[in-house]
Design a protein around this nucleic acid. Structure first.
Lengths: 245, 245
DNA sequence: AGGCAAGAGTTGTATATACAAGTTGCGATC
DNA sequence: GATCGCAACTTGTATATACAACTCTTGCCT
């Protein structure tokens, strides 16, 4: 499920040189060795290290840049992209981004942060097998004192990379999810629902208010790392996804 | 609003050669001269035509391919992409694609097809100014005899490219929207609503059923060409958007 | 000490070339 | 007439090179 640096099919073709370099870079990012904003080897360094021409090294860097994994700056160098600079999670992030961009007062209140026993639905979404430890948190977002969105996060601790797990006790899942390595994938599912009584109470809405519910599953190579469920009442928020090409 | 072949800012820098070639290709696609699946000039032809090296011509084709505008096939050539091969409109298309892909019975019923006077909301969405002619159609989608989605399309006839308008009397707006040139952009807005009485009747649902409503605006260089409103009852359908990177 | 200039390092654009690999159509052969 | 194989064409990979444009540091000069 993680980015595959190679474009080739399952044939045992000798992989192209530039895909080997892409793989090399991806591995170092995935392991946490090269965190966000870290400088990756320059074209000339890769040229020497892999004994290829500059154009071949360049192609590896170029393609990873187009995939949003790297960021290049003429004269400065090539760097690991920040979560923020990736457009693929745009749709969901827009919810909170638009709020803050509009100059509206945006507050978030952390409600829960604990290890829990999950429901069947979450177990399926997280693809749990052996009672792995799941961390749960709730974040309630406000705009001008109105509760506009409830964010429920379920994190499969066993799949959080080691280098992040070491200080997991002091960072919240929310922080983890915004500091996740750029190689993470996500799938989204959007649904219109009537919120449960409990959620209605937290968002202070009538039980008949239609709500937009987005389920985002974040994947690493090992499987589903986390599930985030965002619930927003329809009369208070719209999810705008601007897909341009 | 249309694809801009150049990456440069507003500075009056001399544009790079490969952007000139990209522009050239985009213009021919936009004008309708090169329709979908049409063969575009090969790398060698562009090399001669623009007096550049093959690598420069290649770069233009390559980048347009990455933008989903062209499709390349080793040995065969480079072709204008089909609407289908563009992933940017994925989210909405999934609604109907998933239905047919699952092997379920999927029927669509054309309800209306006429020129209308639009409401204020649609006029704003279409950015109408001088009482332009708007074409309207309703399509009701069925799955196993259940109405699962209402599709309302508003097309600003004055912005439909000439080469399509000539036979517009015999193609429906639905057909137009699936044969639109690959350079079209779209923006989406997703909302959870309670459907109007009229829509409830057509979809055969209770007035309290939450519905997913997607408004898709299709842009050309001249402005908003069409607005499509898809309404799906929440208990009958989910919109899954799988955004991978 | 502050500012400017030079230079090293990095990415961006462009060329010329070579061979590999896949597609297509034409022609020779059976 | 049908089929096979080759030739022409096209895209894919890779190299070597050159210069332009931009960033950042270092060191010199005022």
């Amino acid at each position: 499920m993680t980015i595959n640096a190679s474009n080739s099919s399952t044939k045992k073709d000798k992989p192209a040189k530039y895909t080997i370099i892409k793989q090399y870079i991806c591995e170092h990012i995935e392991s946490g060795e090269w965190p966000q904003n870290a400088k990756v080897p320059s074209e000339n360094e890769l040229t020497q290290q892999f004994d290829v021409s500059r154009m071949t090294a360049r192609r590896a860097l170029q393609e990873l840049t187009e995939q949003g994994i790297l960021v290049r700056s003429q004269g400065a160098g090539t760097f690991v992209a920040t979560f923020k600079s990736q457009s693929s999670l745009l749709e969901i992030r827009n919810i909170s981004d638009e709020i803050s961009d509009r100059g509206h007062q945006h507050k978030a209140k952390q409600l829960v942060l604990r290890s829990i026993a999950v429901t069947d639905e979450i177990a399926i979404l997280l693809n749990l097998k052996n009672n792995e430890d799941v961390f749960y948190s709730e974040i309630l977002h406000y705009e001008n004192d109105d509760a506009i969105q409830l964010e429920q996060r379920f994190v499969n601790i066993s799949l959080v990379p080691d280098y992040l797990l070491q200080n997991f006790t002091i960072i919240t899942p929310h922080e983890y999810l915004s500091s996740v390595a750029p190689l993470t994938e996500a799938t989204h599912e959007i649904e219109a629902i009537l919120a449960s009584d409990e959620i209605c109470q937290q968002l202070d809405i009538q039980p008949t208010t239609p709500c937009l519910q987005v389920k985002r599953r974040t994947w690493s190579k090992q499987g589903v790392v986390s599930v985030a469920i965002l619930t927003s009442p329809g009369d208070k928020y719209r999810l705008g996804s601007h897909l341009k090409f």
